[in-house]
């Protein structure tokens, strides 16, 4: 069944404390919070659009832009950093000919992220929503093959 924005909004009372959860949900379902949807959210919560955008653009788990199909995240937390997560980033950059942090590639995005709290199993990489633990630079090729 198709989930519409209206259906999502109706799950939440139009109270301030529900704004962030609603935005998170919209972003999770549609991939991002579009201009039109933000307008509807603002209307539903009786807030100025600027306010909705201000909140939406602040948080990592709310996207405000359409996302590429392939999103690769590599943890750069202290634990992952000392176990060579930077080399993993470099390896992915070389293999896919992309740059970490480049927002303008329509197909793939490589993001360096903060700690996910999986430090015991690091270095950690996340592709779309699948988590890879104890990743090594040498193992990057094999992981990427699953997705390309």
């Amino acid at each position: 069944m198709l989930i519409t924005l209206e259906k999502i909004l109706l799950e939440y009372d139009p109270e301030a404390k529900n704004l962030l959860p609603a935005l998170e949900k919209i972003s999770a379902v549609f991939g991002y919070v579009s201009r039109e949807n933000a307008r509807k959210v603002a209307d539903y919560f009786s807030l100025p659009e600027s306010k909705v955008y201000e909140t939406a653009s602040f948080y990592d788990l709310v996207n405000i832009k359409k996302q590429p199909n392939l999103i690769i995240k590599v943890c750069s937390g202290t634990h992952c950093a000392v176990s060579d997560s930077r080399k993993i980033v470099e390896e992915i950059e070389n293999k896919l000919h992309i740059k970490a942090g480049d927002e303008n590639n329509p197909r793939v995005k490589l993001e360096i992220i903060s700690c996910l709290g999986r430090c015991g199993e690091g270095p950690v990489a996340v592709i779309n929503d699948k988590v890879y633990e104890r990743v090594t630079a040498g193992g990057v090729g094999e992981i990427l093959e699953e997705w390309i």
Partner: peptide
């Protein structure tokens, strides 16, 4: 009329309109 917001985070923060 609250046209502006403080958008994004960290070094990327910028004052602007929605979208």
């Amino acid at each position: 009329v609250k046209s502006y917001g403080f958008n994004h985070r960290g070094g990327a923060s910028v004052v602007g309109t929605a979208y």
